[in-house]
Amino acid sequence: MGTPGHDSDLLQPLLDGDRRALARSLTLVESRGPGFRNLLRGIAPRLGRAHRVGVTGAPGVGKSSLVAALVATARNNGMSIAVLAVDPTSPFTGGALLGDRVRMTDHVGDEGVFVRSMASRGALGGLSTATGDALDVLDAAGFDLILTETVGAGQVDVEVAHESETTLVLFAPGAGDAIQAMKSGLMEVADLWVVNKADDVRAEKVRADLVGSLSLHEPPDDLEERVVLTSAKDGSGVGDLLEKLCARRAELESSGARGDLARGRIRRRLTAAARDLVSERLLGSAADSLIDAVVTGERSVHDAAEDILRTDDGGRS
C-alpha cells in the first residue's frame, strides 16, 4: 500500500497526504527519533498554511466536545481540520491516560479530519518544543485548521498558547471560573473567551461575570464580541465561533500581525532548541574538563558556559 518502510522515507508521503506517514512523523518528532531533524528540515518550506488555534480551560468545561463540534462545522464548510489533544503525563510513572478521543470518534473515513493524542511529557525536550514540532508536521500535511486542546492548569496552557496564533479559553457553568484563569495567567493569552454549555440557564450569568472581570483589566474595545456563547450539546453558537476564528485569521493576515506572531514563535522555539543542544553537550565528556577547570578555579562558571558554546560537537548533522 505504499506504506513507507523507514522513517527516512516519511517526508514525501507526509507531504502527499498519507495518513500513516503523518501518524509516524508525529511519533518521530515527538520522540526525537533518528532522522527527526531531517524530517523537520524537509517540511520547513511548506509551513504557514494552517491556522493554529489553542483551546484550553478547566477540566470538564467541554473542550473536547466543543472541538468535536467545531470539527463537524468546519467540515461542513469544506475546511480540513486536525486536532492535537494534550493530556498530562504522570510524573511518577511516566504513563498517561489520554481520553479526549472519546468525544471525537465519529469521522471515520473522512480524510479531512485527523485526531492525535499527545502526553505532555512523552515529549523529550519540553512540551512547547514538541507541540511546536507536531503542529509543524500537521501544517505540512495540509490542514486548514489545527486545534490544540490542553487541560487548563496554567503553565502547560500558556506554553501551548505561545505555539498558537489564536487561543480560546473556555468557561462553563459550574466549572472554570474567571478568577482561576486570571491566576494561572491564561486570561492574558486569550484571544477569544468562550462560555460553553450555553444550553444551561446559568451560562448567561457566567458570561456577564466574565465580561465584568475582564472589564477591570484594560479590556479590548471589542470585548463583548470576543466573548462567545456556545453549546457543544445543541450546536448553538458553534458556527458563530468558527466565523470569528476565520475572521481573526483573515485579520491577522491582512494586518501583517500573522508574520509577527510567527517570528515570536520562532524566537521562542529557537531559544528552546538551542537550550536543548547545550544540555546535550553538557551530558557529554567535554563538560567534564570544563567542570574540572571550574573546580580548580581556572575558569568561572560563566567562562565555562561560553566555552560550551564554542565546543565542537563532533560533526553531528
Binding site: 503525563t89 511516566g94 498517561a96 491516560l97 489520554l98 478521543r101 470518534t105 493524542s117 502526553a119
Partner: peptide, 8 residues
Amino acid sequence: GMEVIYTG
C-alpha cells in the same frame, strides 16, 4: 508507564 488512548 504506558500512554493509553482511551476511546470509549
